[in-house]
Design a binder for these strands. Sequence first.
DNA 1: CAATCCGGTTGCATTTTGCAATCAGTTGCA
DNA 2: TGCAACTGATTGCAAAATGCAACCGGATTG
Lengths: 172, 172
Amino acid sequence: MSIDRRSGCPINLSLEVFGDRWSLIILRDMIFGGKRHFRELLNGSLEGIASNILADRLKRLMELGLLTKADDPSHKQKAIYSLTEMAITLVPIMAQLGAWGRVWLPVTEELSIRAELLEKGGPPLWEQFMDELRQEHLGAPSKTPPNTPTVRRQLRAAYEEVVARKAEAVTE
Amino acid sequence: MSIDRRSGCPINLSLEVFGDRWSLIILRDMIFGGKRHFRELLNGSLEGIASNILADRLKRLMELGLLTKADDPSHKQKAIYSLTEMAITLVPIMAQLGAWGRVWLPVTEELSIRAELLEKGGPPLWEQFMDELRQEHLGAPSKTPPNTPTVRRQLRAAYEEVVARKAEAVTE
DNA sequence: CAATCCGGTTGCATTTTGCAATCAGTTGCA
DNA sequence: TGCAACTGATTGCAAAATGCAACCGGATTG
């Protein structure tokens, strides 16, 4: 899979970047799931990506400028992948995609609670989330006031609450 | 190409709908280009879709509930495709996709002016545009005040202005 | 020192895509 | 009336992408 440049239309060019079934899934897991390693991405995703496809897409996303790769100092064989600013600014697209999917497609409750939160938070919450990602992936200084709960933590807490509530509903 | 339902995640499900290189291009041409017929979509797009792929995607988009098809009374062989509400609400996604592509990808000026306008107009302009699409495709009554220039006309005028200016720059 | 983990690679069958030619019915025009 | 152009597709075939499972050598852990 390579970039074609069929036309200079922005929608077309965006589609040539992630008009496939896996690139955005990988970015989703990195952005929302905090995954940084090959194995985390391989075993962590619900959708079950194959290792050759994962390797190919990581390479492609690096060539396109959406990811960078570095050695993990804790383990000589580990590589750590980072989002670039180009990838971090996909957050609004992810939010819109999630919002649309939540309305029109057969989503499950526990997996869509995060999309709901992100939609309700709107652009200010997206900005805060992108700021956090810049700290994690680019080493940028924080612009949010200290002791603010991180967006990722909020999303995670909401997810776990739904899972717990559903489990309780089954056992009672 | 069918729908897999690999997981109930809204981003994944959205990706299963248009995680390919053509579905969104077709919807783009219908939404922004006003294309309604097979031949218009076949010959009109800059990217040059093949007729078998177009036929397949139109069928798929109908099955998914994004399009409907009706006889064109003016010609016994003509079919007219319409957007459903599900497809019309893709406008914000298109706008975000265009805005992102404009920043990060090698877009051409004349093809990105529309994305720029749509981005600057923000959600109110998107709403007006969706309202117009509901009139055209669903026969809905207008909610915008009369004599307001249509969004499509504004986008088209901006595009033609850029083209004219570039042509002038060459010939002078 | 053996099991596990690390980021991948290889080979192969299946599916999807792209391309060009073609089709049968419909319409406009001379 | 006759014919060219147009309608929404379909067919056959080669090339590319995908999915799957097995495997690799080196690093780490218990």
